[in-house]
Design a protein around this nucleic acid. Structure first.
Length: 525
RNA sequence: GGUGCUAUCGUCUAGUGGCCUAGGACAACGGCCUCUCACGCCGUAAACCCCGGUUCGACUCCGGGUAGCACUACCA
């Protein structure tokens, strides 16, 4: 009896959702969709000290932006969770956990411990490699030593305590991992993990995780590799509860590593190397920091998805561009790499470039408007005539940018006449004869009939009247084409860059073109 | 320190015993295109961690090293 596939993404609201977490969510989502299963979002807020306001909202907004849809639990439409297994916030499931903590106590799989953090710290300082386990637990302050009656008395008296999992030593525990195969460890290296802390009346991750995954009928636990060492503990917990036969399957994903050097990717790396480590910009209300996000940096969600999908997973073959649907179709856990992937930000930019090329000029124009607004003071929601040329301009320059915001530096001269002229371009392209050439060119262009200015519909720029006229003039004077055209370009653009010159004159129009040449002649002689 | 995981170009990766003279992509470099800068196209350089074993034959299987990473909390 195969159960319906159910995966969960279970972040802690301790800050912005890290890009590695996003990838974990993505792989979960792909797996769920591919198998016609459920994608569940659960909030693991069992550490009250690390809670950051706004983090939960951030997580659901980030997933929504990326197109990772949540079927059950906390989501945009149902901020308090939807589905039959709620509540989906662990801090709201205290009663449920109590019951299971009791079960473990009553079946002698767990015990009460009264050692204070200070006492434990002292113990660790005193004994090298101290571990709370079979060898040491009888020297500690717990119900195993003092007896259950005494323990209950102390609890009733209001003493703080924790519940620890009693781990039988020297037992080999094997976890089958869908990516790595069988992983075996000996139970002696495990300590008696704290499962519940009375101080805040909340379980720890390990207990809450097992109870919730079981109750929520999770079939596959797909999470980061940092959890692999505690997977055997989780297996033991399933057994202690008597849930071994419905235990989910595990898949531990490789980590995302720093682009340079060693170690896993951290928030600091983003700041240090200048790229976002978070999907959305995040204003941390707790410590006042602001972290940049992919969305605000101009990334398209589909580019982020595509980029992330390939960091740790790859199909056979050479395909690089994947839509979400293609990923859902082709993804498979057994093609996930076992080794960590260094985060190559440059490749991320390339993906964005590819997706930007796929967008229509119209769509890009929409996205570009706010940028125009920002750069052109008198733009004011759309100066007459500007919208008309925006799409055309974008079509001319989009293949040279990775981001919408870069469109401005490529196309600014279409909207604003050059205020100064690039020195390098001048040194290389503005010759002694240039003023004379430009004066002659000016006269020549003035003679062009208004109706002949624009390149006719369906013709290339070289086939227009302007090109023929100017080329003939250059030839008759035996000037160098490059010398004249580059000087002309400097007049119009302010530098030796930009699209084809007749494409520029088309958009600028006769009046503005001539005006710019006159201004340049005045300023440059 | 202990335990576990991992190991192909600088980076992401293909490769599941002969299709490998190790393929693709990003980045780098060179060329072409050209009025400029880009884009694009073409090309160059660039890797199987080491040592053993198994085998007619190992990048691929096994063992041992080495290295990297993760975990080792009343955090997740």
């Amino acid at each position: 009896m195969a159960r319906k596939v159910c995966v969960r993404f279970a972040p802690s609201p301790t800050g912005a959702l890290h890009i590695g977490g996003v990838r974990t969510a993505l792989y979960n989502y792909l797996f769920a969709r591919q198998n016609g299963g459920t994608m569940l979002l659960r909030i693991e807020d069992t550490d009250s000290t690390r809670f950051v306001p706004g983090a939960e909202q951030y997580i659901i907004e980030a997933l929504h932006w990326l197109g990772i849809q949540i079927d059950e639990g906390i989501c945009l439409e149902s901020p308090d969770g939807k589905g039959p297994h709620g509540p989906y916030r662990q801090s709201e499931r205290r009663e449920i956990y109590h019951q299971y903590v009791d079960q473990l106590i009553n079946s002698n799989h767990a015990y009460y411990a009264f050692d204070t953090p200070e006492q434990l710290e002292a113990k660790r300082a005193q004994i090298p490699n101290f571990q709370y386990d079979a060898r040491t637990r009888m020297e500690m302050d717990n119900s195993l030593v003092i007896g259950m009656d005494e323990a209950r008395k102390r609890i009733a008296a209001g003493e703080k305590y924790v519940v620890r999992f009693l781990i039988e030593p020297n037992e080999d525990i094997t976890v089958h991992d869908l990516i790595r195969g069988d992983v075996t460890i000996n139970s002696s290296i495990l300590d008696d993990k704290v499962l519940y802390k009375s101080a805040d009346d909340l379980p720890t991750y390990h207990l809450a995780n097992i109870v919730d995954d079981h109750l929520m009928e999770v079939t596959h636990v797909i999470r980061g590799e940092e959890w692999l060492p505690s997977a055997p503990l989780h297996v033991l917990l399933y057994r202690a509860f008597g849930w071994a036969d419905t235990m989910p399957q595990f898949a531990h994903l490789p980590l995302l590593l720093k682009p340079d050097g060693n170690g896993k990717l951290s928030k600091r790396d983003g700041d240090r190397l200048g790229f976002p480590v978070f999907p959305l910009e995040f204003h941390n209300q707790k410590d006042g920091t602001v972290s940049s996000g992919y969305r605000e940096s101009g990334y398209f969600p589909e580019a982020v998805i595509n980029f992330l999908a390939l960091l740790g997973w790859h199909n056979t073959g050479d395909q690089e561009m994947f839509t979400m649907d293609e990923l859902i179709q082709q993804f498979s856990l057994d093609r996930v790499s076992k080794s960590g992937a260094k985060f190559d930000y440059e490749k991320g930019k390339w993906f964005n470039h590819q997706y930007l090329q796929l967008k229509s000029n119209k769509e890009l124009a929409q996205l570009f408007m706010p940028v125009l607004e920002q750069h052109i003071p008198e733009f004011n929601g759309g100066r007459t005539g500007v919208e008309a040329i925006v799409e055309q301009v974008i079509g001319l320059v989009k293949d040279r940018v990775n981001f919408v915001s870069e469109l401005w530096e490529q196309a600014n001269f279409f909207f604003v006449a050059p205020a100064e002229y690039d020195e390098k371009s001048l040194a290389k392209r503005w010759k002694e004869d240039s003023p004379r050439h430009m004066t002659e060119l000016l006269a020549l262009l003035e003679s062009v009939d208004d109706k002949d200015w624009l390149t006719p519909e369906g013709k290339t720029a070289e086939e227009g009247v302007l090109n023929t006229l100017v080329m003939n003039w250059i030839a008759s004077k035996e000037y160098g084409v490059g010398v004249v055209m580059n000087a002309f370009r400097i007049c119009l653009v302010g530098a030796a860059r930009g699209p084809h010159i007749w494409a520029i004159t088309d958009i600028l129009g006769k009046q503005e073109t001539l005006r710019r040449v006159r201004v340049a002649l005045e300023k440059l002689h």
